[in-house]
Design a protein around this nucleic acid. Structure first.
Lengths: 339, 339
DNA sequence: AAATAAAACGTGCACGTGCACACTAAAAAG
DNA sequence: CTTTTTAGTGTGCACGTGCACGTTTTATTT
């Protein structure tokens, strides 16, 4: 592996000049630049990561992490993955400032300001879907503080990347499972968070599109909202089961799984009901072990945390943007036996 | 973060002595040792990885990788994951020597010798199940060449770890899927590689055990062997389908999936047959897209490659053994929609 | 022509560790 | 008493990069 020193010797200049050429720092004579670049290409120069890491020690990179769901175990797992990656990246001597807030625009905006005050060099954010947050992200970008959105996106903002799941594909996967579980003829009820939340809607359309394209005999009988609240969920599911005693599948697009399952346990059903959910938080796992939930589709929260940190640190150290601006996690289906 | 330099200053000794104490190198006065260790613990000293990486440059670690299945796309994916991790670990300046061989004891033994000749510092190996290989691994261990088994294990050897899947759990997961796909009453046919191969047997017993424990109405009608050969597979599956025209599920524990599926395509079945397989090689994906295969259980080949390299390099650089001597991958269920 | 500004480049330190080598003082051997 | 051994310790280089600072040359202004 070629080093800057070797390039300098072969080009007849000093290591400092090579540094200036390769890192676009300062001013260099056009001819010199050409020669250095030539030789660098010839030797297939790749910066030595150990050297970069060593030099990065003094930079003391500070990364802000701001997630919703202060009480949501899903985001605990995101944090776990992020921490794991932080350990791996400890070689670059970077530190994180973590904040968990409830689902609220104002506290999101103020916490971002707080993190900026602390002098963060980059931000990982699960954004509230509001124009003010988008503007904030754009401002940060102008201030040389790059931002990565995680779990939910703000596609029109100047975030350098989104890391999360493909919600449409989530819905399609659920549809595929329903087909396999029922043999192609079924009555499906859907419990969603809110029609206003884009990602819930996308999961529903992914599912409906697949049914109409491939399994027309599967019928979505009703969609109810639980506002991601377990008690609301308990109520709406109870009533749904009363209205449709012949329901064969119940599909949760988001939170409120536990409340919904309690409603199922409480109802006296004559036919077996298959339940399909998202994510595998502890209460979901409990219901899978009881046999209430047949399958759950996981969006790899740990990987989301790990990937977003890796991308941000890479950008801060090398200036490399990710190849794709949206990075989707693999979806993994879990049943009782492979939890 | 504390450094060796700081520890040296606080202990009133030189950095060299701190190095000797912490890395058990050379001879140190008992009292001095005690004091240094005390202060190191007090400061919660963790060696700086960038420094280690930089110093590791001159060691030029060489890792041998010896995998079966020269023509098997599954092991291609293992190699992909390993390469990816190698890129990440390039910071330590290590290189790999890769060999792919066919399933044969003699060539495995001779290739190991060849790699040792090349001066490898460690070996990643998918071992042939034979005492001679075990002895070879033990010999390597005596020679200070640690070995990690991948995909299949040799538990009684002196390998420092096994990275792969839990075959019994694979079988249980398949059983769980069959239950969900059929509703608890089904006739199941099993196509296996060979009864002599331990891991195939484990997948079958995982499946049978779950059925007898939880789903007694599901019946395994026959187990046939295909010796991991597609044409043999075509033949035995054809005959199996003739003998059991009422079969509801066909379960492949190993290779020969493509040949078996061709047999299914060729047979005129009156009732829909659900097929469950392992891994997601290109021909399997093709059959999933055609709708022949309902689901496949993946053992994360890329992760196997990545994890084994990470563990080996970690051991070589720091002497840390993995916490568990057997590392099992998560099992991920794939259907057409989440491939 | 002298003074100032700008362009272009070189030098040297810092980062933390591994390891070879040199060195001192005390104990053992002659 | 002198020489040799050995336990114990200190010193300094190497690894590759980022970056601040200094120096020299060339161009521009007064």
């Amino acid at each position: 592996m070629a080093t800057m020193k070797e390039i300098a010797e072969l080009s007849g200049v000093s290591r400092g000049t090579v540094d200036r050429v390769l890192n676009h720092r300062g001013v260099v004579n056009a001819e010199t630049e050409k020669k250095v670049l030539e030789i660098a290409k010839l030797l297939d120069y790749q910066p030595n990561k150990a050297g970069i890491a060593l030099a990065a020690q003094k930079k003391k990179l500070k990364i802000g992490v701001l997630l919703f769901g202060a009480e949501n175990p899903f985001f605990d797992e995101v944090m776990d993955g992020l921490k794991r990656k932080l350990e791996e990246l400890s070689i670059y001597g970077c530190t994180t400032f973590e904040r968990r807030i409830s689902f609220d625009l104002e506290s999101q905006l103020s916490t971002i300001d707080e993190l900026v005050e602390l002098g963060i060099n980059g931000l990982i954010l699960s954004p509230y879907n509001d124009e003010k947050v988008q503007e904030k992200i754009d401002t940060l970008w102008e201030q040389n503080i790059p931002c990565i959105t995680i779990n939910t996106d703000l596609p029109d903002s100047k975030r350098i990347a989104y890391v999360g799941s493909d919600y449409y594909k989530c819905g399609q996967t659920a549809a595929g499972l329903i087909h396999l579980f029922t043999g192609g003829c079924a009555k499906v009820g859907i419990v969603t968070g809110s029609h206003k939340v884009l990602c819930h809607e996308e999961r529903i359309s992914g599912l409906k599109d697949l049914f109409s394209a491939r399994h027309p005999a599967i019928q979505v009988v009703e969609v109810v909202e639980n506002n991601d609240d377990d008690y609301k969920s308990y109520e709406v599911v109870s009533k749904l089961l009363e209205r449709h005693p012949d329901l064969s599948v119940l599909y949760f697009t988001a939170a409120g799984v536990y409340g919904g399952c309690r409603a199922i346990l409480n109802a006296s059903l004559q036919s077996p009901l298959k339940v399909i959910t998202f994510d595998a938080v502890p209460s979901t796992i409990e219901m899978m072990e009881k046999g209430i939930i047949s399958a759950t589709i996981c969006q790899q929260p740990e990987e989301q945390g790990a990937k977003s940190l890796a991308l941000l640190v890479d950008y801060l150290l090398t200036g490399n943007l990710p190849e794709e601006s949206s990075i989707y996690m693999d979806l993994s289906i879990k049943i009782r036996e492979n939890l």
